[in-house]
């Protein structure tokens, strides 16, 4: 009887420790694992410039698969890549911070998937992005 209780306690402690270790080493969320909302860059930018609050409730922190044309490519200070997609309004763009460093991209049509982090000075910002196509 005593042995059984001891074993149960031991098992519980083991589960606790394992969960702790797992939580501590929990991997970052990957956008590939999430179902993305498919949208055109122009439409997304328009929604954000029209009503940021309403757009946030629809898109903030969600995985977004955005289709568009590359307008500009910028390097971040840590060597990452920021892709800016074309929209109808230069002041209201869609910016995508890519997850992988050292990506070589050619201008043209592209489909990018990333997490929406919100509206930033008139633009929509996606982060941890990957190229779908």
């Amino acid at each position: 009887m005593g042995k059984k209780i001891l074993l149960t306690i031991l098992a519980l402690v083991l589960i606790g420790v394992c969960t702790g270790i797992y939580m501590w080493n929990k991997p970052h969320k990957k956008v590939e694992q999430a179902e993305g909302i498919v949208i055109d860059a122009r439409v997304l930018a328009k929604e954000y410039s029209t009503d940021e609050k309403a757009a946030d409730t629809k898109y903030l922190n969600k995985a977004i698969e955005v289709k568009g044309t590359i307008d500009e490519l910028e390097k971040t200070q840590d060597g990452g890549l920021m892709v800016i997609l074309k929209t109808d309004d230069v002041a209201a763009g869609v910016q995508c911070a890519m997850r992988e460093k050292g990506l070589a991209l050619k201008r043209g049509h592209i489909v990018i998937k990333g997490f929406c982090s919100g509206g930033l000075m008139g633009s929509v910002s996606l982060t941890d992005c990957v190229i779908v196509q």
Binding site: M23, K26, H28, K29, N61, S117, G118, T127
Partner: peptide, 16 residues
Amino acid sequence: QVLIKSFKFERELMQE
């Protein structure tokens, strides 16, 4: 202007 969700931590747990 800074978006809070664009802050990256080494550990996902801290980020959450």
